[in-house]
Design a protein around this nucleic acid. Structure first.
Lengths: 203, 203, 203, 203
DNA sequence: AATGAATGAGATTTCATTCAT
DNA sequence: AATGAATGAAATCTCATTCAT
C-alpha cells in the first residue's frame, strides 16, 4: 500500500513473484505464525496448492523472502561513506539507510521480528546487515579518531549508539505514526540527530 | 530461565501464577501464535482445561500478561530523574531502565513483538511506556534548555534520540550476545553513550 | 418468568428444589443437550459440584423432572369429564387442560422435545399422558354414541382430532405469540373450537 | 432410513449433498446439540475437515438445511385449494400436506424442534410455512362464509383448528406409531377428520 | 502450470464429572 | 452439606499439505 512493490530479482516466474509479494504483505501484517497459507493464496490470487508448487513448506516461503541474496540486495545499495564534511558523510549514511528502510519496511519488519524466533534468520541478519554496517562505521570512526577529529570513544560503542539513534528514529516514525510524536519534518529531525551525535563525538 | 521469576502481584491463585509464568516463558520463545496451550499447560504442570478455567481464551492469557497494571508495575519503578549532575541524572535514568529491561526481558520481548499485530497492545505500550518516558525526558530537556545548559535542539527529537541509544544498547546486548559485538563492560558502555549524548546536547 | 414456580412435591431438600427449578428453566430455554450444568448451577446459585451431590448424572437430573410421579402430578389434576351439557363437559376439559399446560409450559416443552430422543421419556408420556387422556375421551365418545348424541365416527379418530385441536390452539398461542395470529380472547377461541367440534360430531 | 433421499436442489457438489443428507439423518435422530460433527462425517463417509470446507460452522450446517429456499421447496408443492366440493377441497389440502410431511419427515422434525431454541428458524417457519398455509385457508373460509356455506366462525380460529387437526393426526401417526393407537386406514381417518370439521363449520 | 477437493494431525475450547477439604 | 479446584475426554474448528486431474 504505502510500500513499493518489491521485485525479487533472482526469481523468474511471475506467479512466484506474486506469491512472494503477497507473503511479504501478509507476514508483515500478522507475523509468520499468525498468517495462513490460505490468506497468502487469496492475496496472490492463486490456489493454496500453487504456493506449494513453488515452495515446499510455509517455512521455505519465509526463508525465500530472507534469502541472503534478498537481504544483500537491500543492504548493498549503500555501502560507501562519502561526502565533503563529517556532517555530510553521516547525513548521507543515515538518509540512505532511512530510504532503504522505507522502501523495504514490510520485509524488514518480517526479518527483524522473525529473527526473534528463528536462529537461522538471526544469523543472516547478523552477517548481512549488522556486521556490514558495523564494520563500515567502525572503520570510519577509527579513521576519524586517527585524524584527531573524534574523541577517544570506543568505536563499537559509537557505532551501536548511532545505529540505535537510527532505529529510534524509525521506531517513532513507523510504530507510533499517527500519534504526532514528532511534528517536525523528517529531514530536520535527521539533521538534529546528526548534530547531537557529531557534537558528542567531536573533540 | 535466564529470567527472574516474575510475580504477578495482583493475581492471587498459585495455579494462575504458574500458568502466567509458563506463558511468559513459552510465548517469549515462540511468539504468541507459535505457542500452543498444550505446551504452556505442560510447562505449568497443569492440564489444558485448567488454563481455560483461569483464562477464557488463549488471547486473554496474552492480554493478562500485558494488562496495564502489569506494564505499569514494570515502568513505574523509575519515574524520577535525579542525581547531582546532568551526567548523573541521565546515567541513573539509563541504568535504571536497563535494569528494568533486564529483569523483564521475556515479558518485554512478548510485548514488543505482539504489539505489532495487536493494536490494543500497541495502545498499552504507547500509553504506559512510551508516553511516560517521553514526557519525563522532554520536560527534563526543556528545563535544561531554559537553564541555558542545553543547545536549542527540539526536545522531542532529543528524547527519541536518547531512547534510540538505549534501544541500540539493549539490542546489541540481547539480540547478538554471544557474538562478542562489544567486549567492554556494560557500565563503561553506558558511560560512553552518555558522554556522546551529553556533549552533543550541551552548549 | 411467566411461569409458576413448580414445586416438586416428593423432593424434600430446598437445594434440590432450587436445582430442579433451575433445570426446568434452562432445559426449556436451550434443550437438554444444549444446556450445561454450569448454567444450571449458576441459575440455582449453587456450585456445579452440588448438582452432582443430588443427581448422579446430568441425565438423571432430566429424568427427575420427568419422573412418572412428576408427570402424574400434572396430569392427574383433571381426570373427570363433567358438566351439565356436552358443550360444558368439553369446554371444562379443554379449559382445564389449557390451564394445566399454561402452568407447566416449561416442563412440558422439555418433555415433548426430549421425548423425541429419549425412548424412556416417550414411554412415560405415552403411558401417563396420552393413554390417560385418550381413554378418558374415547370412553366419553363411546358413551355419547351409545346415547345417540354423536355420529358414528370412530372414537379414536375423534379423540385424536380433539387433542389436535387443543394442540393447534396451544401452538399458535405459545409458539407465535407476538405475531398477533389471533387477536380474539382465549375464552372465545375455545368456545369456537368446541362449536366446530361439537357440531361436527353431533347427529 | 424410512425417509426419501432428499435432494437439495440448489446445492451442486455431491460431497456437499452427502453431508447435508447425513446431517438430516443424524440431527433428526439426536437433535442438533446432541449430534456431533464426527457422527455426521462418519455417516457421510468424509472427514470432519471436509464438513468444515463446505459449512463454516456446525450451526451453518443446520441453517443450510433450513434455508428459506429449502423450506420453500417443501411447502410450495401444494398451494392451491381446489376440488369439486368443499369436502374434496379440504381433503385434497390435507392429503397433499400429509404427503409433503411424509416425504420430508426427518427434515420437518428438525425444523420444528430446533425452532424451539433458534429464533431465526422460528422466523423462517412462521414466514414460509405458517403464514402461507394460514392465509390460504383463511381466505378460503372467508369465501365460504360470504357464499353462505359456513357458519360465522372466526376464520383465524377455524384455520388454527384445522391445522391443529392435521398436526394431531401426524403426531399420533409418527410419534406413537407402533402403539396401535389407531388401526384404521390413513385415508379413512382423514375422511373422518374432514367430516368432523366440515359438519362443524357448515350452516 | 494450476487447482479443487480432501484430509491427518493438531489447536483451542467445552463440559460433565471427581475429589479433597 | 457444600464447594473450589482440577481434569479426561471429547467437541468444534484450523491449517499446512497432498494428490488426481
Amino acid at each position: 500500500m504505502d510500500n513499493f512493490q518489491i521485485h525479487f530479482g533472482h526469481i523468474t516466474h511471475p506467479t512466484q513473484q506474486k506469491i512472494l509479494q503477497s507473503a511479504v504483505k501478509i507476514f508483515s501484517q500478522k507475523g509468520f505464525s499468525g498468517s495462513t497459507t490460505r490468506e497468502i493464496a487469496r492475496e496472490a490470487g492463486v490456489s493454496e496448492a500453487t504456493i506449494f508448487r513453488y515452495f515446499e513448506t510455509k517455512k521455505d516461503l519465509l526463508l525465500a523472502l530472507i534469502s541472503p541474496s534478498m537481504v544483500k540486495s537491500i543492504t548493498d545499495l549503500f555501502v560507501d561513506m562519502d561526502g565533503e564534511s563529517e556532517e555530510n558523510v553521516l547525513k548521507n549514511f543515515l538518509k540512505r539507510n532511512a530510504e532503504a528502510i522505507k522502501d523495504n519496511q514490510d520485509l524488514l519488519k518480517i526479518i527483524l521480528y522473525e529473527a526473534l524466533f528463528h536462529p537461522e534468520i538471526k544469523e543472516i541478519i547478523f552477517k548481512e546487515i549488522v556486521q556490514k554496517k558495523t564494520r563500515l562505521l567502525e572503520s570510519y570512526f577509527e579513521q576519524q579518531k586517527r585524524d584527531g577529529q573524534f574523541k577517544d570513544i570506543d568505536s563499537k560503542t559509537a557505532t551501536q549508539t548511532l545505529i540505535g539513534m537510527l532505529i529510534g528514529f524509525q521506531l517513532f516514525k513507523y510504530a507510533f505514526p499517527s500519534q504526532d510524536t514528532n511534528p517536525k519534518q523528517e529531514n530536520d529531525i535527521l539533521d538534529d540527530i546528526i548534530r547531537i551525535f557529531l557534537y558528542g563525538m567531536k573533540k
